[in-house]
């Protein structure tokens, strides 16, 4: 398989074609590119958060490749759907996603965390308008998404708002303020997705600050909750399809708890909290990761040789 660093086919329209045949393989391929590009960018940066980028790759691929009505030529279109990366340290995966779907240049996006690069360690809307808002302080993105959903509704704009939360992030009280307000204001066009990889910076969620029973908590806060395998593209698309129905038929916001594996796709990284970040890859580690993800020697060179 060939995953050239440049000229990924830009899906230049809001696809919203649900699970048309052929979509899932393309999304799986996009997820693979997102993982490889994230590894490469973090390698070049000398720091960054790889574990969560690996766990969220299919979620990003499905959001930008199928679910959301966004396109590179329409980042100022008022009717576009909005995405907020509340777990701002997942930036490498967001940039890789943007690179794959044509929102930014794939090679430029390898200059992660470099002085003068718009690809900062956490997303900044003034540097990259298509990231929609600046995040990086956990808990704020979900509130911004609530504000977007409220503001769109006040202006009778039917665009939808999507937000990706980290699991450790839900230890921030602001998340629950936001959860309460979204339900109170009946923001059915808001969908939050939890990248539930069970690990946070230092250790497991369970050992740091228990989140369970997570689905029950969100249901108690008045949300429509689904639990899925966050690496199963078909399951992700089905869950988004259900949130679309929910948006039309109900008055409650949607939450998708995506059970994921931190470091997914890179065996030495999977389920090891030390790869949360911020880590420095050796060339050998980066090569091993890309190889595990299916890159050949040419692609490894293209991703990892000096920028």
């Amino acid at each position: 398989m060939n995953l050239p660093l440049r000229s990924q086919p830009a899906n230049d329209a809001g696809q919203n074609t649900d699970t048309a045949s052929g979509t899932e393989p393309k999304l799986a391929q996009a997820a693979r590119f997102i993982r490889m590009h994230s590894i490469a960018a973090i390698y070049h940066a000398g720091s960054g958060h790889p574990g969560g980028a690996m766990s969220s790759a299919e979620l990003f691929a499905c959001l930008y490749g199928a679910e959301m009505n966004v396109r590179p030529g329409g980042i100022d279109d008022p009717s576009r759907d909005r995405f907020v990366l509340s777990k701002g340290h997942g930036a490498p995966a967001l940039y890789a996603t943007g690179a794959h779907f044509g929102f930014c240049d794939a090679r430029a996006a390898l200059a992660l965390r470099k002085l003068g690069s718009p690809f900062q360690g956490h997303p900044h809307v003034l540097d990259l308008p298509w990231v929609e808002t600046s995040t990086g302080s956990l808990g704020q993105g979900i509130s911004v998404a609530v504000g977007m959903a409220l503001g769109l509704r006040i202006q009778k704009n039917p665009a939808r708002v999507y937000c990706l939360l980290g699991d450790g992030e839900m230890q921030e009280g602001e998340v629950w303020e936001a959860a309460m307000s979204a339900a109170h204001h009946e923001l059915s066009r808001l969908t939050a997705v939890v990248d539930y990889n069970k690990l946070q910076s230092d250790a497991s969620n369970d050992s740091i600050m228990r989140l369970e029973p997570l689905a029950d908590k969100w249901r108690a806060f008045g949300w429509n909750v689904q639990e899925i395998d966050g690496h199963d593209v078909t399951a992700i698309l089905d869950a988004f399809h259900n949130t679309g129905l929910n948006a039309e038929l109900s008055k409650v916001p949607s939450l998708i708890i995506a059970h994921t594996i931190k470091g997914k796709g890179v065996p030495y990284m999977e389920n090891i909290p030390a790869w949360h970040g911020s880590v420095k890859f050796t060339r050998a580690q980066a090569e091993e990761a890309l190889t595990a993800l299916g890159a050949d020697a040419g692609q490894i060179a293209e991703f990892l040789d000096d920028l």
């Binding site: 909005r82 993105g141 911004v144 936001a178």
Partner: peptide, 15 residues
Amino acid sequence: QNMMAAAGGMAAVGL
């Protein structure tokens, strides 16, 4: 806290 950040979201969509 939620109100302050939500204001950012409302401004982001033109209010």
